[in-house]
Design a protein around this nucleic acid. Structure first.
Lengths: 143, 143
DNA sequence: CACGGCTAATTAGCTAGCCTAAGGATCGTG
DNA sequence: CACGATCCTTAGGCTAGCTAATTAGCCGTG
């Protein structure tokens, strides 16, 4: 079932799909709680262990001042802890607190209900397509 | 090459890919020019012909006040025209101006250079996967 | 025919999330 | 030891979304 589409059509189509789905994801913000941006940053911290703000902003593809704000909010909620860098006084190390880790876990289970439910309605074949596309799209965003 | 992934992994992975790619798309704002949101609304108007603000906000999945602002910006630029509803004095009809249509066309060609270039680097197989996924994702966002 | 309740659109005001520019602290090297 | 580079933050601005409240117009009922 090859879809025949010009490159322009594909570009427009993909952009549209991305922006709409993103809007939808933002809307589904569950009680409590963290925004998509905050959760993403927190998750990067768990994966990366302790990161500096610079490393974290690189990982999240935002500018450093943006990350300052995101981290500030996570800190307010006690989900991230800041400690001095052992050898470089300019830098700071960020790490999730125990509560932060807990929050991530509970989100992994609870959070994406809306999207998970939608995905569950797809055929196995469609899910497979989406899974492979997700990897490809991540690659695009990273590049 | 079937990717084996739990539903949770897929959900998280997809959300991540969407948000990151969306950030990237926002950043690539070309000179001139319309934001992704504005272009999307304008395109909906071209497809839908003349729509009321309510219809347009439904189509774009935003709340009416949000659409009021988007339309105001498009109007400022002379890309959208407002006319009274023939039978209902509360409503308003929105339609793209000639210039608005022209702008859409030029964007279709010029705008998504960044994304188009990325897509061009994919293998035909990957492009096909992305194309099919785009349709599926649009369906998700719509539902 | 007027009035009460609904709907459409806008206004007001908030938050998140992104940016650039500029500043202060620290590092490292000549 | 001074000076350029680097790290983080502050300041300020913009887009994009939201909810609550207001204004205007519609319509059915008494």
């Amino acid at each position: 079932m090859v879809v025949s589409m010009t490159p322009e059509q594909l570009t427009v189509r993909l952009r549209d799909a991305i922006t709409r789905l993103n809007r939808r994801l933002r809307q589904e913000r569950p009680l409590g709680d963290l925004t998509v941006t905050q959760l993403s940053a927190l998750t990067s911290l768990r994966i990366g262990g302790a990161l500096t703000p610079r490393e974290l902003s690189d990982a999240e593809r935002v500018q450093p001042p943006t990350m300052t704000k995101i981290v500030a909010k996570l800190e307010e909620r006690g989900l991230v802890q800041r400690s001095p860098h052992p050898t470089d006084g300019r830098q700071v190390l960020l790490a999730p607190t125990a509560e932060g880790l807990e929050v991530i876990d509970s989100y992994q289970r609870v959070r994406d209900e809306w999207l998970a439910a939608k995905l569950a309605n797809l055929t196995p074949d469609e899910r497979d397509t989406v899974a492979r596309a997700a990897s490809i799209l991540e690659g695009l965003a990273r590049a």
